[in-house]
Amino acid sequence: MGTLLVRRLAALVPVILGVSVAVFLMLHAVPGDPAQIIAGQEASVEDVAQVRHSFGLDQPLAVQYARFLSRAVVGDFGTSFRTKRPVIDEIGDRYGYTLLLGAAAIAFAVAVGILVGVVAAVFKHSWVDNVCLLVSLVGVSVPNFFLGLLLMLGFSVWLQLFPLTGADTAWHVVLPAVTLGLPSAAVIARIMRSSLIEILGNDYIRTARAKGLPEWLVVGRHALRNALMPVVTVVGLQMGYLLGGAVIVETVFAWPGLGRLTVQAIAARDFPVVQAAVLVLAATFVLVNLLTDLVYSILDPRVTLS
């Protein structure tokens, strides 16, 4: 298990390397001269040349990449074109917030999704089930920003339970996390429901009942764990969606996360920040998937990490 984990982590290296080359080439392929953008419209030709030189953008591409890589290996991602700060600091300031928002959103999605899914499955075809179905339908179809504004109106402006925007206190994470997590919660609820219904039809559930176990133990001990497996897969996939949706949610709630920073950096052609941010997001994604596999292998003894 330990060595398998190490091997899986080692597999990260080519992924990261590949992503870094792809991002590097993409950044240089898209139109938009960083020096010009950073210097602004009114900058003189000399100003722009000065900026270009100071960024090293006047060097050949291969040299630029080699320099990026050789520094990145020792953890130096350069300085931001825009802010002149070390990219590590730029990302470091934001990454924690992104992780916090992502973790809160996924925690919400998993908790609510599983709860609703289990309730719907246990009471399948009853009105409870129908309500759950309707709620999850709304959950997946309402756009993030609209949901965010609705929650702001309802919970901040009207009920005044949560602050509107920002990231000052723990309360600030609630609405963005719910906004970000709700569509995932809906998807998880649906998968959970159908999976649990399927599992409850299994022979070993009948065995458990024949043993005289109360229904909550039958569901909780015998069915839930098996039914969770497809949910784990879906949660892993939802992480990708969360990374995407985070940009909008971070914007609506003025959450200082990495998604917003990345979008700003792309708009400003702040190459070092984009490069590092994409690498960090890619590594996060790979690690999250590894984590998913790990959870999977814990849930199902037939699966090993390979």
């Binding site: 504004l149 901040s156 402006v157 509107l164 609506v252 709630f253 003025a254 200082p256």
Partner: peptide, 18 residues
Amino acid sequence: FRVVPEDSARVLQLMSGE
């Protein structure tokens, strides 16, 4: 100086007194 990128969110902030 607070950053609130979304136009509507800014208006809500003003309306709610934040």
